[in-house]
Design a protein around this nucleic acid. Structure first.
Lengths: 162, 162
DNA sequence: AGTGAAAAGGCGCACCA
DNA sequence: TGGTGCGCCTTTTCACT
């Protein structure tokens, strides 16, 4: 068995990529509209999307919101230095309870956990930092405040742009 | 003019928040389905969504993809130390040409630009770092590789969770 | 601002190439 | 795998509240 076609994710073809590109721009586009762009009939598009969902490539569909318009104007990176024996699972359960946390990743280097948060204002951010610093496994924190967001394409697929 | 209802973004009410919560979970949900949850008729839901789009709160709808399933398994934070006189505009135009860049922000502290990138593998990541380091305005870079993504809710609205 | 009904159009399935 | 046809549901508009 040289190739693992079927269960595993073989590279998607140009049609799949084109469909994902359309969905990334407007996830509420009708299958007919997408089909018109990628030269496919609506049912054919739907079947490919269903297949992509089943394969796990497509995890779902979301709305793109403007955080500032919702009153969340403050953003920061909080680096967490943790006690040596802290497991990723411990970090995860602790950190995912914060609605302010946008992303959290264990990283290489002297920092153990890189946490990205969004808060309503500086006062709110300060409280979040204090709460994170008070977590039992946290030894020290280092905060870096975002001045301006130059680029932001979070859920956008990099594979569709090069 | 005491209140600025209409053009400006007054705080959204509970109904708007409930609708956005539904859309954040499934942006392809029908207006009827959303209406069933928030106790509203389909046309009423549509009008509120249209209003939220017009207000700029809703910027659009996207697909949530699994980067790993697309073959983008390597992630990193690249901190850029720039020459003193570099404007944010210069940084932005340079950095947004990279399809690998997920986000880029000017930040406080000794680092000038915090860049988050996604690459296919380490070799690819290395090339991106080298290209960024070769940008004329970049003095030095510091890379931090993501070991595991503990939390990831990029376009998800924090306002709907607390 | 929300409801309800009617027209237009998209969806989803079965079937064919 | 992709295309077609048809029943059904959704979207969309309009008059009414």
């Amino acid at each position: 068995m040289h190739h693992d076609s079927g269960t595993r994710a073989d590279a998607l073809d140009g049609l799949d990529e084109a469909i994902l590109r359309e969905l990334s721009m407007d996830a509420r586009a009708s299958y007919a509209e997408i089909g018109a762009v990628v030269s496919l009939s609506a049912p054919a598009v739907k079947r490919r999307v269903d297949r992509l969902r089943a394969r796990g490539v497509v995890r779902g569909f979301t709305v793109r919101l403007d955080p500032a318009a919702l009153g969340w104007s403050t953003e920061a990176f909080i680096e967490l230095f943790c006690h040596g024996s802290t497991s990723p699972a411990t970090m995860q359960t602790a950190v995912e309870r914060y609605p302010e946390v946008v992303s959290a990743s264990t990283v290489t280097g002297d920092v153990d956990l890189m946490v990205q948060v969004r808060a309503r204002d500086m006062r709110h951010l300060e409280r979040v930092v204090e709460r994170l610093a008070a977590e039992p496994f946290v030894a020290r924190t280092r905060s870096t405040i975002v001045l301006s967001a130059l680029v932001r394409r979070p859920e956008v697929p990099p594979a569709l742009a090069d």
